[in-house]
Design a protein around this nucleic acid. Structure first.
Lengths: 136, 136
DNA sequence: ATCTTCTTTAGAATAATTATAAACAACGAA
DNA sequence: TTCGTTGTTTATAATTATTCTAAAGAAGAT
């Protein structure tokens, strides 16, 4: 159980005032034991369901983007009509079940070290992500 | 230099009749020495430039999707407002220069073998793709 | 309390993609 | 060839995710 105090801290760190709406967003995002993979639309609907209060779509977009920028959320590189985010911001990878459009975490140790033996002058590596697509 | 005969074969294999428009699309896609990374919009504009003939956007979408389905084009999993495709359909990976929005091929041997030590019951692995994001 | 600044919101704007349906072109059989 | 069938092209409309806008409301500092 994550406390409201922590939500407020996350919000302040992201240069956001702790409003009722944003706390509700935090409840859905961070008050859980497991990693949470979601689209903005998933989140938007869950807020209504879980808190009983409605938050406008624009606020959801704004807050998610601020958290992403601050590093409290990770964007998952996948081609889909909607953008997926992940509350697990540690270094890890994903399965994507193409048929069911479902993401599953892949721990770093389940993939093993990835050696990139090529470099681009003037550029450094920001992230290395593996996407494993699954079929039946 | 790829021949028109080859384009027609690709089209027929994809259950598409070889029309003037589709041949033009093939010219831009497959008549080149190097891998080609593109968005639909890139391709749409290049057709006008390279062949002098206009093809409607809908035809470009249809043809690209048919080639993708048949395996003549690969979709690159990356979060962008537009979908990226690749004419290199062999097993390989990508650098993505976030600042310049540019893709660079990463040969399979530049990454080394990737061992996925986890499996999902009832599902098999369709593809394993690495995306290396670059920053300055 | 009050003033300033930030936030929320509904709705409009934007942009990629997909659907539609009428005019047109490829195919195959006679 | 010619004709009939079936597939294709196209402009345009529809759809959908995301971003923008501007007015009303809430948070924070003094």
């Amino acid at each position: 159980m994550t406390s409201k105090r922590e939500f407020i801290e996350k919000l302040r760190n992201s240069s956001l005032r702790p409003t009722k709406q944003r706390i509700n967003i935090c409840e859905v995002l961070f008050n859980r034991d497991e990693t949470f993979h979601f689209t903005i639309n998933d989140l938007f609907n869950l807020i209504k369901d879980k808190t009983g209060e409605k938050v406008s779509l624009a606020t959801v977009y704004n807050t998610v983007h601020a958290f992403h920028k601050k590093g409290y959320l990770k964007e998952i590189p996948i081609n889909s009509n909607q953008t997926y985010f992940d509350t697990n911001v540690t270094d890890h990878h994903h399965f994507f079940d193409v048929k069911e459009e479902k993401l599953i975490d892949l721990k770093n140790e389940d993939v093993g070290p990835i050696e990139i033996q090529k470099s681009i002058p003037g550029k450094k590596i920001k992230s290395v992500e593996v996407l494993v697509k699954l079929e039946d």
